[in-house]
Structures are given as C-alpha cells and as structure tokens.
Amino acid sequence: MHNYVALLRAVNVGGTGKLPMSELKSMCESLGFAKVRTYIASGNVVFESKLSEASVKEKLEKCLDAYAGKPVGVLVRSAKEMAAVLAANPFKSAAPNRTVAIFLDHPPPQDAVADARGRQDEEIALGVREIYVHYGNGMADSKLKIAAAKNGTARNMNTVAKLAEWANS
C-alpha cells in the first residue's frame, strides 16, 4: 500500500465547488482507498491505496466529475513527496500562513518566476512540481499572477505540514 495526499482544485473556495468532506471521504472509500481522512473543508484527503499515483488521480477525477457534473482537478503526492515539499520550502523563516506551495502536475517552467505579473513584495521559488510563494503582506491584497500556476492548487505551509504528518503516520 502507498500513502497518498490528494489536493482538489477550487473546492469550497469563495462559495464555488461545494463538496462536503464527508462526501469526499465516501467517494475515496468507494474507490477502494483505505484509512481515508479529510483535512479542513478545502479538498484535502489522505489515504492508502495500492494503485499508482496516475491511477489514483484518474479514478478520483472521474468520480468527482460524475459528482459535480464538471471536471475537478486533483493533484496527488505520495507521503514521501509531501514531506519533501515541506522540507524544501525555501521560506522556512517566514510565517507559514503567508507561505504557500502551489502544487502542479509537472515541473514548473524555468521562466515561471520571470513571467509572474503583478508582483509586489512576494518572493517566488521553484520546486520539483511546485511553486513556492511567500506573501510578505499576506494574500488578501496581492495582485500576483503566475501563469504557470493556472492549473495548480495552493496550500499554505501549515496545511502542508499537517498533510505530510498524516500521510507519514
């Protein structure tokens, strides 16, 4: 069995994509995932599966599409990868609630930082399949747009730490 973290895009954010976490848990269990736990109401789920990452992603996206009637993006990381995302955070001394990892399916393009628009005091760094952003003054008034992050989903470092802990326990 493999331990995974699945991160759903645009779920329960700003009143769009409503999905009760109890429904997400039931979906995952119906797909044969074991030890399913959800974390906060923003589309985070930790579970075990004997399937590959690609198979987990495909099955969960199909199930969510059937439920929502539209595609719901899913980013999947193994327990080891989630721990590595946390360890690789280049902004460890910054407030974890003002630092995010934007999870992507593929490595970010090398020009992602240079192509960012609306940058003010934000710091940006590239990861393996992530883009890290530290919002010095918080996210509320940020105008930052990162084209490479369009199909990604962000989680702050507090959430990343909790998901890494759960996936590795």
Rank of each mutant, 00 (worst) to 15 (best):
K62D: 10
V133H: 03
D115K: 01
S26K: 12
P20F: 04
V72Y: 04
K35G: 12
E122F: 05
E165S: 14
N12C: 04
A83G: 11
A87M: 14
V5P: 01
A6K: 00
K162R: 13
G32W: 07
I102W: 05
R129N: 08
L60K: 05
V56G: 04
K59T: 02
A140H: 15
I146W: 05
L51S: 13
V5H: 01
R9N: 02
H106F: 11
S42N: 10
G152A: 10
L64D: 02
E130F: 00
V5N: 03
K80L: 13
A87Q: 15
G138K: 07
R119W: 10
G14A: 09
P109Y: 03
L163V: 14
L7P: 01
G152I: 04
G17Y: 07
S26F: 10
G14M: 08
K150V: 08
L64P: 02
A34R: 10
N158S: 11
P107A: 13
V5Q: 01
E165K: 13
V36N: 05
E58C: 07
P20H: 06
P96D: 12
K70Q: 13
A161N: 09
S55G: 12
S78Q: 08
E123N: 11
I40K: 07
L7D: 03
Y4Q: 02
K150Q: 13
G138A: 11
R77A: 06
Y132S: 02
D65Y: 13
K92Q: 11
P96N: 09
K162P: 05
E58V: 03
D111G: 06
R155A: 06
A149V: 06
P71G: 06
A87Y: 14
W166S: 15
K143M: 12
A167G: 09
S42R: 01
K25T: 02
C28K: 00
D111T: 07
I40L: 12
A94W: 03
E123P: 05
L75G: 03
P109V: 09
G138M: 09
E48Y: 09
I146E: 03
A54R: 04
L19R: 02
L64G: 03
F91Y: 09
G138R: 06
R117V: 11
M157K: 04
S49F: 02
L19Q: 06
S30N: 12
I131K: 02
A147E: 09
W166L: 15
Y39S: 04
R77C: 05
G69R: 03
K62V: 11
S30E: 11
V5M: 06
S93N: 15
T16E: 13
R37N: 14
E53N: 11
V113W: 01
G136L: 09
K162G: 12
K57G: 07
K25C: 06
H106G: 14
V45D: 00
L31Q: 01
H2W: 14
E29K: 00
L64F: 05
N168C: 14
G138Y: 08
K70G: 13
D115E: 13
S49Q: 00
E23V: 07
K59P: 01
L60I: 02
I146K: 00
M139I: 15
E122D: 10
R119N: 06
S52W: 14
K70S: 14
D111V: 07
V160H: 03
N151H: 11
G136H: 05
